[in-house]
Design a protein around this nucleic acid. Structure first.
Lengths: 152, 152
DNA sequence: TTGCATTAGTACGATTTCGCACTATTTAAT
DNA sequence: ATTAAATAGTGCGAAATCGTACTAATGCAA
């Protein structure tokens, strides 16, 4: 703790691994999605399913840590595919609410099912309890970066 | 171990966190790089510094897990900026060797220095020993995905 | 040796991503 | 109430990313 410079290589290594795993998992995931859909699309559907729909584009963008202009584009794609619907935001007419359609929910379920075999295979080859052990610090790092970004 | 389906949510959570951390750290990193440079550029310079230059574009692409067409583009940018040089590959004339220039080495050092304050601050707020503990499983996951991809 | 499959790299085009600038609306201050 | 500052979302343009298809060189087999 006395010499934080010593810790820098460890932090670098973390970001290095995370960058590559993110790259690998996204690409693998996308091969399992229907043509024309990306992880960015799935991430929105998943977010709305897990935390509830009716959220605004901005709040989704912040949760997924992408610029709001990117979210506009992603939502446009989901809307064109009929997976989400827009409703006016009764509390703020500058804004909108993003709603999941039935097709959107089905799409997410199918996507998860399509990944199932990969996940099961991975669960058989990797000690998942170690992943569970690693999750808290990752969540901590995420929260830290999130705050550091706000404070910028 | 008996019911891998139970592990799937844990694996999902891992990829979820990793995706967001990757997003956050890349964006933060890029704000510290000179204008026009991205994490993809730094990653190549860093790779060549750590493991030695003289590698081929394909081997770099595989190490960083990006398509070779993306690597062609990234290398073009580094070359235009004078940070790398190409030499013919004596063992295979289809290929080339990517060499670091002095400017390339300096660029990497400056980039790391520019990140220093962020890293130090993070090392002060986060228990880095927990990061060190988490690294082995991340490396294992990376290696697994890497193999799973080859076997595709 | 000859021929065929494989490999390294690239050109090209489609799409994504994202920063900047803008409009419309809301909030806050006086 | 009026005005200024902040906010939500988008249009636009530039750049990155990546899949497909191609060329050139290599390796392998008969």
């Amino acid at each position: 703790m006395s010499k934080p410079e010593q810790d820098i290589p460890t932090i670098f290594a973390l970001f290095n691994e995370i960058g590559i795993i993110s790259q690998l998992s996204s690409r693998l995931f996308e091969t399992r999605l229907p043509d024309g859909f990306l992880v960015s699309h799935f991430a929105v559907l998943n977010h709305l399913t897990r935390l509830g729909d009716g959220r605004t584009p901005l709040s989704i963008a912040q949760a997924l840590q992408v610029p709001k202009t990117s979210m506009t584009h992603t939502l446009k794609g989901l809307h064109k595919a009929g997976l989400i619907a827009f409703e006016p935001n009764p509390k703020d007419s500058r804004s909108k609410c993003v709603m999941l359609t039935d097709q959107g929910r089905t799409f997410r379920e199918n996507a998860i099912a399509a990944l199932g075999p990969d996940m099961v295979q991975m669960a058989q080859r990797i000690d998942v309890s170690k992943i569970a052990d690693a999750l808290p610090i990752l969540i901590e790092v995420r929260a830290y970066l999130d705050k550091a970004r706000e404070a910028e």
